[in-house]
């Protein structure tokens, strides 16, 4: 195998870019799950965000509006999930799956006529001479704003969940909705807020795929990134900073296997392209078993619907 042709600085710089979609989607889903809701529709919300963001960016010419459009698309679809699970008390697993099936279909429908178009370029944040620093420059100071935004979202989420009243309420709702209800918190409304946040983040992550990573529109463009994001939440055992680590890890694997494909390694392309999924499974196994079981850290009422009898 030829690792020599792979430049580590460029590798790190590009893994930070590759990690953005799953990081945004995963941190959104983390907040959703912290409030006790399991939304398996991340893939659907991401792909909706991808097409809504793409259409907005192409039509307005502004990539920034594109990301807002993507967030709106993801949040819009997540509202369907919220309506079904919070108002009509539908099964969360089934509704999440429905969300993914529906999102894949609707995005393909909306995307007709947008194949083969290039979206407007998202420019790098100008850091001036800082970007010229050897090694550190390309890694830290030569990215578009969403890369920094995604790290900021992690930091803010960590701070909100850890140190604010809002975070305490979200965690209370996720650990015991009955107790939270007894204290007078509107369980379903708080969950609605979390679900919408999760949808917006997933949508933005999807928009990053179609606007920066690929950048064009093809049906089912997210190719399982939403499911990997769900796995990363488990990997992170519901801790925001570990989402960052997980996302960079998977970003690294993705970039590395793409680089190996391009470098013409001895491993067949097919086996390289299935590696992110296989490694996800292995990581899930490691995190779910043994003493430090991730499941022990899971929100106590994850996946259970709340119906206020009184």
């Amino acid at each position: 195998m030829d690792f020599g042709s792979i430049n580590p600085v460029i590798l790190i710089a590009s893994l930070m870019v590759a990690a953005v979609p799953i990081m945004l989607a995963a941190v959104g889903e983390l907040v959703v799950e912290k409030s006790g809701v399991l939304n398996l529709g991340v893939e659907g919300m991401m792909v909706m965000g991808a097409i809504c963001g793409f259409i907005t960016a192409v039509e307005t010419g502004s990539p920034f509006l594109g990301f807002l459009g993507g967030a709106a698309g993801g949040a819009g679809l997540s509202l369907v999930f919220a309506l079904l699970t919070q108002v009509f008390l539908a099964n969360q697993v089934a509704t999440g799956l429905a969300l993914t099936l529906f999102g894949l279909g609707l995005s393909a429908l909306m995307g007709q006529g947008y194949n083969g178009i290039k979206p407007p370029l998202t420019p790098d944040v100008p850091f001036g001479p800082l970007a010229q620093i050897p090694a550190l420059g390309p890694i830290l100071f030569a990215h578009d704003w969403v890369v920094y935004f995604s790290v900021a979202v992690i930091a803010v989420t960590w701070w909100v969940l850890k140190a604010t009243r809002l975070g305490l309420i979200i965690r209370a709702v996720g650990e015991s909705h009955d107790a939270a209800h007894a204290l007078g918190y509107k369980v379903n409304r708080i969950r609605l807020g979390c679900i919408t946040f999760g949808g917006a983040m997933a949508g933005m992550g999807g928009a990053y795929v179609s606007l920066v990573r690929v950048p064009q529109w093809v049906d089912g463009i997210t190719a399982g990134a939403g499911w990997i994001a769900l796995a990363i939440v488990v990997f992170a055992s519901w801790r925001p900073w570990r989402v960052l680590i997980g996302a960079y890890l998977f970003g690294g694997i993705t970039v590395l296997q793409l680089n190996l494909q391009a470098a013409g390694s001895a491993i067949p392309v097919e086996y390289l392209s299935m590696s992110p999924y296989l490694i996800t499974i292995i990581v899930l196994v490691i995190m779910s078993s043994g003493k430090g079981r991730a499941a022990l850290n899971a929100p106590a009422v994850l996946g259970q619907n709340f119906h206020a009898a009184r």
Binding site: L84, A94, T95, A98, L101, F102, L104, G105, L109
Partner: peptide, 13 residues
């Protein structure tokens, strides 16, 4: 595909 997805939504709702 959208139609089929909608069917599942309505069913669950």
């Amino acid at each position: 595909q959208v139609f089929q997805g909608m069917l599942l939504f309505f069913l669950l709702g």
